[in-house]
């Protein structure tokens, strides 16, 4: 199989990779770029653990082929904290107790981040809807929603 060349921006850095076209974005990010915060929970775009922010919008990286992100801006959880300074959501997720097993956490924070980038003061219903593509089996979502609300206040 012939490799393809994909250039995109990953966590604020321009990158280029030669990769096989049948590689999914989730696999490329995890294996080739070491972004193991991107989790695979279902492989069918349902659980949201593989969520990344693409051009400002959350998408499921398990439903995308590597070639599809050419020219895009991709943010994973690795790209959220800057120079050791945590993003506000990373802080509030810790403080609110929104993290339990932690497997959904990266995708959950990124979905919340994408929401706040577009809508800095969402209502609770808007928060619920923005997180509805990220399944969590531990927390009952309550403290996750609270963490987002705490981030709004800051």
């Amino acid at each position: 199989m012939e490799k393809i060349r994909v250039s995109f921006n990953l966590n604020n850095e321009d990158v280029t990779i030669e990769t096989f076209p049948n590689k999914r974005v989730v696999d490329m990010l995890r294996e080739d770029f070491g972004c193991t915060s991107v989790k695979e929970g279902c492989g069918e775009g349902e659980c949201g653990a593989c969520t990344v922010i693409r051009n400002g919008e959350p998408v499921t990286s398990c439903t995308m082929l590597a070639g599809q992100v050419a020219g895009d801006r991709i943010v994973t959880l690795e790209g959220l904290s800057k120079n050791g300074e945590l993003d506000i959501l990373q802080k509030t997720f810790m403080e609110a107790g929104a993290v339990q097993c932690g497997f959904c956490t990266p995708g959950m924070i990124l979905s919340a981040k994408a929401l706040l980038m577009k809508n800095p003061h969402p209502t609770r219903e808007e928060i619920r809807r923005a997180l509805s593509g990220n399944l969590c089996r531990c927390t009952g979502y309550t403290k996750i929603i609270k963490a987002v609300e705490m981030a709004i206040e800051e």
Partner: peptide, 21 residues
Amino acid sequence: QSVIRKEALSKVLGEAKFAAD
């Protein structure tokens, strides 16, 4: 005391290593 759980930081940073990692 509702202290912050021990592994919370590594989890919010995405650094916590699960088996597949």
